[in-house]
Amino acid sequence: MTLDTLTERLASNRDGAFPDLVRSFQDGIYSGALQFTRNRSDAEDVTQDTFVRAYRALGTYDPERIRDLQLRPWLWTIALNRCRNLLRSRARHPEDPPVDEHRDRSIDTATEATANADLAMWRVRLAFLSGPQRTAVVLHHVVGLTYEEISQATGRSQSTSRSDVRRGLARLRTIIAEEEQ
């Protein structure tokens, strides 16, 4: 199923097509949210909230508007907003424990533990980037958005998004080089 058919189906029958919208985009949203938030449970919350909000929004759009939607960047506009709100409320309530992967009881295999240590390490590295650079790098290289889609999701121009990614990558290389010294 192509994304064009999905928007068409959403426009003509929101409820019938909505579960497929979730299936098509949940992995991408979750993967990005894992980098933008601090742990799996936050990432899962962001992913859920994104689709719940998308569903409500679709209910207020007329079919023409739904047909014109660029689904991936549209969902990311919502998801980035959710991530920002979550981090803001976390900052305001520092007593909430910053749950870490190590506390996740589902980690029981060595492979999984390594994979999670990996996630944690990259999260630390990405934290050194500026907000827009981190967003652009994750959306482009982890999630797979095009520069055009990043630009639609963030409201920054395409060329700015491109240079956000380029500078972000450069910064990451420096950080990694420093780690290895």
């Binding site: 979730v22 980098q35 996630l119 290289h141 999630v143 990558l169």
Partner: peptide, 27 residues
């Protein structure tokens, strides 16, 4: 390696996401 490593950070959403979303949207 850098971009490859970044691409490897992709994960599947937990299976609970779809069910929970459908429940929360009263589906």
């Amino acid at each position: 390696d850098l971009t490859e490593n970044l691409a490897s950070l992709r994960r599947s959403a937990p299976k609970t996401v779809l069910d929970d979303v459908l429940r929360r949207t009263d589906f």
